[in-house]
């Protein structure tokens, strides 16, 4: 009996400990999350594409935002730039080499609130077999109850990096050496207080 009570307390404490930082599952099932990129074409226009398959989770507590963390895994073969021949090229040896590197991951290392709903998210991006630290400028878009009994929280983020830094050095021209990522994620709370 005593052991049962002890277990009950332990469980309560356990829940208490996680109650502050709510864990969210990124809503890829309902497609309320987008990993998009844009890169200049010849320096004359922006080309947009996205990764259709990924999954991820984040922890966020509005009272303690600096403790936030996020982890995302992308299926690199799911790249989609609305042109099959181009996508085939992007999956091949000149770019992502998806046979060799089927996953890209991002794992946060720090989250620094800058006030006014803005923050700086640092973490390790592993892409094309190369791991490097990147910084994502984050804006909190909103959060609250959804109409179906759940709780959601969403963010917008942008970052930019040189393709060469990740070992992708196919020459697309001087205006197309860097790619911008445009990230929009909505998480569904998995453990509300």
């Amino acid at each position: 009996m005593n052991r049962l009570i002890a277990l009950g307390f332990a469980l309560l404490l356990g829940f208490g400990a996680t109650a502050h930082a709510t864990e969210y599952k990124i809503d890829t099932a309902g497609a309320h999350a987008f990993i998009q990129f844009k890169i200049k074409h010849l320096g004359y226009s922006w080309l947009y594409g996205r990764f259709d398959e990924f999954e991820g989770r984040f922890n966020y507590d509005p009272k303690k935002p600096e403790a936030s963390s996020v982890e995302v895994t992308i299926n690199t073969a799911s790249i989609n730039s609305a042109h099959a021949e181009r996508d085939k090229h992007l999956r091949g040896k000149d770019f992502l080499e998806v046979d060799k590197y089927p996953k890209a991951t991002f794992k946060s290392t720090s989250f620094t609130p800058k006030g006014d709903g803005k923050a700086e998210l640092k973490g390790t991006l592993t892409l094309h077999g190369v791991s490097r630290e990147i910084t994502i400028d984050v804006t909190e878009i909103g959060g609250g109850k959804d109409p179906w009994g759940g709780y959601r929280q969403g963010f917008h983020g942008t970052t930019e990096f040189a393709l060469k830094d990740f070992g992708i050095d196919y020459n697309l021209g001087p205006a197309s050496r860097t790619v911008q990522l445009i990230l929009d994620v909505e998480g569904i709370a998995q453990n509300m207080m």
């Binding site: 099959a84 021949e85 996508d87």
Partner: peptide
């Protein structure tokens, strides 16, 4: 089937 994979 390569070139028409996206409906083009």
């Amino acid at each position: 089937l390569i070139s028409t994979a996206d409906g083009r």
